[in-house]
Structure formats: C-alpha cells, structure tokens
Amino acid sequence: MRLTSVDVCSGAGGLALGLERAGFDPVLLLDNKPVACETLRRNRPSWNVLEMELAHFDPTMHRQVYGVDLLSAGLPRVKSSATTKRVDTGLELRLLQTTVRLAHTIQPKALLIENVPELVASPDFGEIRDYIQKELACLEYRFYWFVLNASDFGVPQDRKQGVLVALNDRSFDRFEAPAPTVARHVTVGEALLPSMSARGWAGAEKWAAQANRVAPTLVGGSDNRGGADLGLTGTKKTWAQMGINGAALGDEVPGMDGVQESDTSGSPLKKLTVEQAATLQSFPQDWIVTGKKTARYRQIGHASPPPVGEALGRAIAQALRR
C-alpha cells in the first residue's frame, strides 16, 4: 500500500526522492526557488509542484493535503538563537516554526523534519526545541530526536543530520530510528572512479587510491555570495589531501593526460564537476538538476541525500502500516 505525503522546502528533491523509494507518493511539493521547482518538474512531471514561499501557503486552497500520512521538510539550516540575534534575520527559524504550525492545519499522521545535528541536543538550540515540543504536544504528537550520518547509509560523505520524527499515539511505539545499511563506508575514490576515468585518464586509479575516505560535508552556500566552492579553508585542505581542488568546480572530468580544459589554475589537483557532486550526494545518474553551474551545485549541496530519506521513510512507513 502506497502512502501519501506533503513535502515543503523541497529543493532538488533529495528527501522526496528517498521517500518515494520508501513508498510515499507526494500530493504536493513546495519550494520558493524557480530553479528548484524546474528540477522537480523535469524529473517527475507527474508531481504537483507549487512555487511559493512557505509563509504564503494556504492549505485551504489545496484540500488534498489534509490528513496525509506524512509532512516532510528538509529545511534550510537553522542557527542558534544567539547567532540569529547577532547576524541574521532568523529566516531559517521562521521556516521551521511555520512547518510545525502547518502540521496544526493539515493534521498528518507523521511529521519529519531534517536539519542541523546540533538541533537535537545542543543547549544553543534549547529555545527552538522547547517551541517545537510545546507545539507538538498541543497536537498530541509524540516525538523522537536523533542524529544520522549519511555515510552510514552508503553516501560517500561525512554528513550528519539532525532529525525530528513525530507521530500520533497509535504509531509512536512502533517507530524505530533507521539502523545503518552499510557495514563499510563508501570512499570518494570508489564513488568517483568511474567518472574520473570516463575520458581515459591513466592516473584515475592512483587518484582513487589516494581519495580513500568519505568526503567532507558538501555545502551549497548562500545565494548572497559568489560562485560555488567546496567549503571553508579547513575543508579545502581535507579535499586537497584527496587530490581535489576545493576552490571551484570544473566543467569536465580529466582527459587522457589528466588535464581539465576549463581549469586554468595551474594546480595539479582536480576540480569536481557538478555531476560528481551529485554522485557524492547519492543522487541517481538520471536525476537532472537544472540551472547554471552555481545554481545546480547549490541545489545539490543543500539537498538531503536520497538514501537517508529512503531509510527514514521506510522506518516511518513501517510504524504507520503496522
């Protein structure tokens, strides 16, 4: 039996894709970015995609959302209350609060929110957790907080995710947080060797042997800053140890002589392509992320890896179906 869902802040569709594999069919997906909505429609023309700010979403205009099995949200990363007061307008926090309030209206059987790992237990996020828990108590939901690492689910990346799962009383005791699905983590070299060798680069296997660890967390960055790179200075040093230039993305994989024609940096390190970044997020090869290079990379970097969404979806589905 297939289950139904509403997915908000859907982005490139990583969480929704994983939930689809777990048996959830979305009745509506919502995102405020045109390029993300284009990605969703390109890959799943049958999905009902709504381009709109979450704060402006009126469920009464979309009656199919009422009583769905699951409300899911891979939200922009919230900041602690101290940080929010100092440097930020608190947009991410408002999106989190709006998602919880949306559960009041549509009354899903289960709620899934994925965010920063610190949200689960850090004292800096105590006020946010208190707000969420009070709202859920009013709805008579019971809830679990826990942290998952995407590398435990076959994703070649050290990507910790804070997760909230809330369910009604009937299903709560039947829920179990997903257990790891792999006994050994997939390395960057293993994941990217097929693409690194696709144009005949003789040094690809030697490079893959050097890239013998999981990747650091991919970050999409802010829409308000420049082009795409792979993170802060410390993260770029980690990439360099694996033979990767983290300062920018490339347009093509190495040729037979190891040269990337678009790379004029003079560095022997290789630049990842957008497609390789998608591989490190465990998107399937046929999943097309639309837009220009930086917009594509940001969608990928902000996404929830589909295997994590699938594991969470299977655990929730099992609790709902029993």
Rank of each mutant, 00 (worst) to 15 (best):
L30S: 09
A166M: 04
S197Q: 15
S267F: 08
K271P: 05
D58E: 14
G11E: 08
R199M: 13
A16K: 02
F283N: 03
L249S: 08
R159P: 02
V116W: 06
F146Q: 01
L269Q: 13
G90T: 04
L320D: 11
S81Q: 14
A121K: 11
T294H: 14
Q299Y: 13
N48Y: 12
Q157L: 02
T98D: 12
V165M: 05
V186L: 11
G220N: 04
V289K: 08
D158H: 03
L148F: 00
E135C: 04
T238Q: 15
Q210I: 07
S5H: 08
H62A: 02
G11K: 06
C37N: 07
N115M: 03
I288S: 10
Q260V: 07
D229M: 06
K292N: 15
G291L: 14
A183Q: 15
M196N: 10
T235R: 05
D251E: 14
M256D: 13
T60W: 15
L280D: 09
R213W: 12
R225V: 12
N212T: 03
I300A: 06
P194V: 02
Q299P: 11
A315D: 08
K236C: 06
G291R: 13
M196E: 11
V65F: 10
V308S: 07
T290D: 07
P216W: 03
A319K: 12
A198D: 11
K270C: 12
V147D: 09
T294A: 15
H302Q: 15
D130I: 02
R296W: 11
L167H: 07
F24S: 10
W287D: 12
A55L: 13
T181N: 10
D130L: 12
Q97L: 01
R86F: 10
E205H: 12
G221V: 05
T294N: 14
V65I: 13
K85M: 14
A277I: 09
L30N: 04
Q241N: 15
V308P: 11
L70K: 11
S265P: 05
T273R: 09
V68W: 09
E205P: 06
Q133W: 01
I300F: 07
Q133E: 15
L54H: 09
P76T: 10
L91M: 13
K270G: 03
P305Y: 01
S81H: 13
T233M: 05
W145N: 00
R44K: 15
E190P: 09
Q285L: 14
V8Q: 07
K237T: 14
F175L: 07
T217I: 02
L139S: 03
N168F: 00
G90R: 06
C9A: 12
N32L: 10
L148T: 07
K160L: 01
T187Q: 08
N168A: 01
A198V: 05
W287G: 07
P268F: 10
P117A: 01
P305H: 03
L148S: 04
Y144D: 13
T105F: 03
L280W: 11
T181D: 03
R21L: 04
W239H: 05
